[in-house]
Amino acid sequence: MSTKIALSNLSKSFPSRSAVITAIDNVSLDISSGTFCVIVGPSGCGKTTLLRIAAGLENKTSGEFSIVREDLRRPLNAMVFQGDSIFPWMSVWDNAAYGLKMRGVGSGEIREIVSHYLDRTGLLRFSEYFPHQLSGGMRQRVSIARAFANDPEVLLMDEPFSALDEQNKLILQEELLRIWEEHKKTVLFITHSVDEAVTLGDKIVVMTASPGRIKAVVDIDLPRPRNILELRRDPKFGKLVFQIWGYLRAEVDAARARAS
């Protein structure tokens, strides 16, 4: 399959008072079209920085980052942010339609697309609600609907479920997989949860503690469509979690040693 996202020798460093801090160090990676790619790493490994560079919210220091464009009308990316990111002053509907409105898509088309994704996320009957009337899980669904509705070349997700409780997390992971199966867009998903990574991903990139480098890339050959509960019973799932934990373990310890 063709390459969709290409990183070559990507580096990012921040100047700080005493020294220059390297967040990402020489990362090279090819993600092919239609891949659900998950990046796992200990906190502070620069994975969020990597995603912010992908989203165009942060500049890289050196190296290359590119997303291959297939359709000029599509935006390059749309991001599902960590934590609350839907506008409190807009209804669920207006939040989900935000990207389309900013792109000047016709109102008829907006209606069609937004109602589709609000329906898929179970939010259609809450269209007129404001975010403060919704639970945390529902707010994150709006954020997911907003990103999917914008129909980007690449979807970026920055620990979208980290603020949710275990049950909500499971339900939203399942919903995400279901919606993703429709078009199989290329996804770059960040998490610190190994379970989540194996559950969702086709390809898992393990990063080292700061500076962030690639420690290992693991292909997940679990069949799709996936049923999350069934998946957990699969011995292969356990093996993969164990394998990835093996890579991550040393990095988490290193990050903790540095912090203390």
Binding site: L57, A78, F81, S85, I86, F87, M90, M102, R103
Partner: peptide, 21 residues
């Protein structure tokens, strides 16, 4: 700040950032 990030990520112009955020 996250709301300005959202505006930028979803392609809002300066005027749209003013108006919608």
């Amino acid at each position: 700040k996250i709301y300005f990030d959202v505006g930028a990520n979803f392609g809002a112009s300066r005027w749209e950032i003013f108006r919608t955020v």
